[in-house]
Amino acid sequence: MATNPSINSNIPTTKMEEEVRGADEKTEETYAHIISTLPKKKSWGQELQRYQGFWYYPFFLDGVISVQHNFKVRPSDVLIASSPKSGTTWLKALVFAIHNRNADDQTSKQVMQSSNPHEYILQIEVVHLYTNNSILNLDALPSPRLLATHIPYSSLPESARDDDSGCRIVYISRDIKDVFVSSWYFFNDNQHDSQEPFSLEEAFESYCDGVTLYGPIWDHQLEYWKASIERPQSVVFLRY
């Protein structure tokens, strides 16, 4: 929440800060209330909540709802979209390299060699994961912005789905069987040593029910595929 210094200049800075903090706390309370009313289901050993037809960890929902209410795309934005474990990291590196092909080649190489693609193309709903847990103001980033998301197409902010926005969306899809296997390995590799591995059979059952992070994956892919047919000038659908 920005405050014009020429307005209310007679209010002490500390009071302004209190008002900003109060507004932020009220917003967080609103989001928390919305999240508390959502359907819940346990899957892959963790609790997921259903929001607008898709499943999320509660940890992510704050970010998803905040993006919907606050994020505005710019005409020069490029948004890389995908469901998890579909080739996102690979696509981020490719898009960054293509986007910077006319820039200082040495600088681009240094960035790609020293940083993970998730660090130089941030995921808008969980941006704090890659910024040392600090909140990064996406509006402060210079144009053109390269950004990423796992949010389903129907849940993107309205500005991203507007034909007149100018924002381009590049979506990467992957064979659903391969996504499942990759997700299962990734989940078990990141379990704590004290936790039992999650069985393939149990994971498969949840996956077929569509109760997975950002799932059902078939709805996720279908929404972006339809968008690419309806808006070919703005949405590119890739298969991996």
Rank of each mutant, 00 (worst) to 15 (best):
A2N: 05
K42C: 13
I121R: 07
T149Q: 09
S154T: 12
Y31E: 02
R239P: 01
L147V: 09
I135P: 00
G53D: 02
T107M: 11
T37Y: 00
S183D: 02
A2F: 10
W218N: 13
K109M: 08
S206Q: 09
H128Y: 10
R168N: 11
E205D: 07
Q52L: 13
H99V: 01
G53E: 00
D104P: 00
D162F: 06
S6C: 12
F204E: 03
M1S: 14
Q233L: 10
K15P: 00
I121H: 05
I229Y: 03
I121W: 04
F96W: 06
I7E: 03
R145V: 03
I172R: 05
I34N: 01
I169E: 02
N188F: 05
S6K: 15
P84R: 10
R161C: 12
N100M: 06
F180R: 08
Q221G: 11
Q110T: 14
R145E: 03
T37P: 00
L38N: 08
L156A: 05
W55V: 11
T88A: 13
I169W: 01
P117K: 09
V126T: 14
P144N: 05
K42L: 02
T107G: 03
A93L: 04
T149M: 07
F54Q: 08
N116A: 08
S182C: 07
L138P: 03
K41F: 07
V95R: 07
T131A: 11
F204D: 02
L147T: 06
Q68N: 11
F54M: 11
S159R: 07
I217E: 01
K92V: 05
M16F: 11
S9T: 04
K226P: 01
S206V: 00
T13A: 15
E223A: 15
K40C: 12
L38P: 06
P12N: 15
T30Y: 06
L79S: 06
Y31Q: 02
H192R: 14
S159L: 03
T212D: 00
K92Q: 12
I65E: 01
S183F: 10
D62V: 10
S76R: 12
W184A: 09
Y31I: 14
L222P: 00
W184Y: 07
P216G: 13
F237I: 01
L222V: 04
S165I: 01
S199E: 06
I98F: 12
L129D: 09
I80F: 04
